[in-house]
Amino acid sequence: DTCAICRVQVMDACLRCQAENKQEDCVVVWGECNHSFHNCCMSLWVKQNNRCPLCQ
């Protein structure tokens, strides 16, 4: 699966965690819609949006 926000494989660290060298801290979360995201990506997304980027 791919993170619906950053488009990186969810089993890999997101771009932000890769840049900050925090790959082991990058975890996967699932929305109520069952789409998967990196927690970092979702945390930033929900500050500006309240819907899944794929379900909009």
Rank of each mutant, 00 (worst) to 15 (best):
N49R: 10
N49I: 04
L15Y: 11
R51G: 14
K22G: 09
Q23I: 05
W30K: 15
L15D: 12
H35I: 00
F37W: 06
C26Y: 07
V8H: 11
L54T: 15
K47T: 12
A19P: 00
H38I: 05
R51M: 08
L54I: 15
H35D: 05
C40I: 01
D12C: 08
C17N: 06
K47S: 09
C14W: 00
H35M: 00
Q23D: 06
C52N: 02
Q23E: 05
N49K: 07
D1V: 08
F37V: 13
H38T: 02
Q18P: 13
N21H: 09
E24S: 13
V27T: 15
F37N: 00
K22C: 11
C55P: 02
P53Q: 06
V29Q: 15
A13L: 06
T2S: 07
A13M: 08
M42R: 10
I5V: 14
E24W: 01
C52I: 01
C17K: 04
D12R: 10
C40L: 02
R7I: 00
V46H: 08
A13H: 08
Q56I: 02
W45P: 13
R51D: 14
D25W: 00
A4G: 13
E32M: 03
T2W: 04
W45G: 13
N49V: 06
T2E: 02
C14T: 02
V10A: 09
R7C: 11
C3S: 01
M11V: 13
M42G: 05
N39L: 10
R16M: 12
L54Y: 10
C52V: 03
G31D: 14
T2F: 07
C41F: 02
I5D: 02
N39R: 12
V8C: 09
C41N: 01
K22W: 04
C17M: 01
Q56D: 06
C26I: 02
M11E: 07
K47C: 05
M42Y: 15
T2V: 00
L54M: 14
V8M: 13
V28N: 13
D25Y: 03
E20D: 02
H35V: 01
K22I: 09
C3G: 03
E24A: 08
C17A: 01
C14M: 00
N50I: 07
N49E: 11
N21V: 06
H35P: 01
W30L: 14
Q48M: 09
V27F: 09
G31Y: 05
Q56V: 12
D25I: 07
R16D: 14
M11I: 06
A4R: 10
W30H: 15
D1S: 07
I5A: 11
V8I: 12
V46P: 11
K47Q: 06
K47H: 05
C6Y: 00
W45C: 13
V28M: 15
R7F: 04
Q48F: 06
E20R: 08
W30C: 12
L44Y: 15
Q48D: 10
C26D: 08
G31E: 15
Q23W: 06
Q23S: 08
L15R: 13
Q9P: 15
C3A: 01
H35L: 00
A13P: 09
V8E: 14
C3H: 03
A19Y: 08
W45Q: 15
C26T: 15
L54F: 12
L54S: 12
Q56H: 11
R7K: 13
L54K: 14
L15V: 10
S43I: 04
C26N: 13
V29F: 07
A19D: 05
C17P: 02
N21E: 12
Q18H: 08
H38F: 00
C52P: 03
V29I: 11
V8W: 07
D12M: 04
R7Y: 06
N39K: 13
T2Q: 12
C40F: 00
H35A: 03
C14Y: 04
C6H: 02
C55N: 03
V10E: 05
H38C: 03
N34M: 06
K22M: 08
E32P: 07
F37C: 04
F37M: 12
M11N: 12
Q9I: 03
H38N: 03
S36D: 01
R51N: 08
Q56M: 13
Q56P: 14
R16Y: 07
L44T: 14
N34L: 10
H38S: 00
V27D: 14
F37T: 05
Q18R: 10
C40N: 01
W45T: 12
D25M: 05
C33W: 00
W30P: 14
D25L: 03
H35G: 02
C33E: 02
T2M: 06
K47I: 05
P53N: 03
V28T: 15
L54E: 14
F37R: 03
R51I: 10
R16N: 05
V28I: 07
C52G: 03
S43C: 06
L44S: 07
Q18T: 12
H35F: 00
V10F: 11
R16E: 09
E20W: 01
V10M: 11
D25G: 13
I5W: 09
N21S: 11
L44F: 06
E24G: 12
C52H: 01
N34F: 05
R16H: 09
Q9G: 11
C14V: 00
T2D: 01
V27P: 02
I5T: 05
Q18L: 08
A19F: 03
N50R: 11
V46N: 11
S43N: 09
C3D: 00
S43E: 15
W45E: 14
D1T: 04
E20S: 10
N21W: 03
V46Q: 13
N34W: 02
Q18G: 11
C40D: 06
M11C: 06
C6V: 01
P53H: 03
D25H: 12
C14L: 00
A13F: 13
Q48N: 07
W30Y: 14
C6A: 01
D1F: 04
C6R: 01
H38Q: 00
R7T: 10
A4H: 06
A4D: 10
C40G: 02
C41Q: 00
R7G: 14
W30T: 14
C41T: 03
E24C: 04
V28F: 11
S36R: 15
G31C: 07
V8T: 12
W30E: 15
M42E: 06
V46Y: 06
V10Q: 08
E20V: 10
L15A: 14
K47G: 08
V46L: 12
C52K: 02
Q48C: 06
C14G: 04
V8Y: 06
C26G: 11
V27L: 10
Q56A: 04
N50W: 04
C33L: 00
H38E: 01
C55M: 04
M11S: 14
R16V: 09
C14Q: 04
A13I: 14
R16T: 12
V27I: 08
N34A: 09
N50V: 12
H38K: 00
V27A: 04
L44W: 09
C40T: 04
S36W: 06
L54R: 14
R51Y: 15
Q48R: 13
C41A: 00
N21L: 07
V27H: 11
N34T: 10
C6Q: 01
S36Q: 14
I5Y: 14
R51T: 11
D1I: 03
L44R: 02
K47D: 09
Q23V: 06
L15N: 14
K22R: 07
M42W: 15
N39S: 10
Q56E: 13
V27G: 05
R7L: 09
T2I: 13
K47A: 09
R51V: 09
T2K: 10
M42D: 04
F37G: 04
L15G: 14
K47P: 07
E32K: 08
M11D: 15
E32R: 06
I5E: 09
C55H: 01
M11Y: 06
T2P: 08
A19C: 03
D25F: 02
V10H: 11
A4V: 06
S43Y: 02
Q23G: 11
D12L: 11
R16Q: 09
D1C: 04
D1G: 07
R7V: 01
V10N: 15
L15F: 08
E20Q: 15
A13S: 12
